[in-house]
Amino acid sequence: MKKVFLIDFDGTVTKVDTVDLMVKKFAKDGWQYYEELWEKGEMSTEECAIETLKLMEMDEKRLLDLLYTIEIDDYFMEFLEFCSTKGYEVVIVSDGYDFNIKAIMEKYRFNVKFYSNKLWFEDGKIKVDFPYKSRDCNKCGMCKLEVLKRYKSRGYYVVYIGDGYSDLCVAKHADEVFAKDVLEKYCRENGIPHIPFKNFGDIIEKIKAINLMAVYRLNNWR
């Protein structure tokens, strides 16, 4: 069976949330109100983004300068190499912005397929678009569940890796879940099977252990 890893970006691939960082760096006071509503599920990602961006004072250069300071997980590049050798597909699913993802991929020189919201600069203004939002739910700007369903319909075994609020819905439907922080707490409280992790080094070792156990069971079954 084909296997794909769907991976959250902000706070999972990166050590810090790039959207949170740019908001704290460039937004005037008042953004906290919208973030609180979003975390409670009382405001969609799209609504939160539009209102927050009204408070932001930044241009393309200032945002890039900030993004180029951000570090990724110490073992993420090793994880990509591991998946490549095993023939596993890797796809980033993010409720953040393509501008941020592209900047980080350029900095670290890797290229991974991704789905996300869009952000660009036009005539001195910040523009955003949400091409992957769900028609049935307005919680997230980019519906990770719809991506998961597309891979499942094509016969993939789907492993999800995440840490935050935009990962809660999709975690219920994955074949296997690696979780930390907010997502780990949610899985634990709601009885969702998951494997806790701190970094991608943990994930590599746990996948190896799972694979060895599967081989052991197969050999003993025979």
Rank of each mutant, 00 (worst) to 15 (best):
W38E: 01
W38S: 04
E39G: 01
M43G: 07
S44R: 00
T52L: 09
L53G: 01
L53P: 00
L55I: 11
M56A: 08
E57S: 15
M58N: 02
M58K: 02
D59T: 07
R62Q: 14
L64W: 02
D65A: 08
D65Q: 09
L67N: 03
Y68V: 04
M77V: 13
L80T: 11
L80W: 02
E81N: 15
E81Q: 12
F82V: 10
C83L: 14
C83I: 12
T85W: 03
K86I: 08
G87L: 01
G87A: 06
V91R: 00
S94I: 11
D95S: 11
Y97M: 15
N100H: 13
A103V: 08
I104D: 10
E106C: 09
E106G: 15
K107H: 11
Y108F: 13
Y108E: 05
Y108T: 08
Y115Q: 04
S116V: 02
N117E: 04
N117Q: 07
L119M: 15
L119N: 03
W120R: 10
E122C: 07
G124F: 15
I126K: 00
D129F: 13
D129K: 11
P131D: 10
R135D: 13
C137M: 10
N138L: 01
C140P: 00
G141Q: 06
M142L: 12
C143F: 06
C143M: 10
K144Q: 04
E146R: 15
K149D: 10
Y151S: 02
Y157L: 02
V158M: 05
Y165M: 01
D167K: 12
C169F: 06
A171P: 00
A171V: 12
H173R: 11
A174P: 12
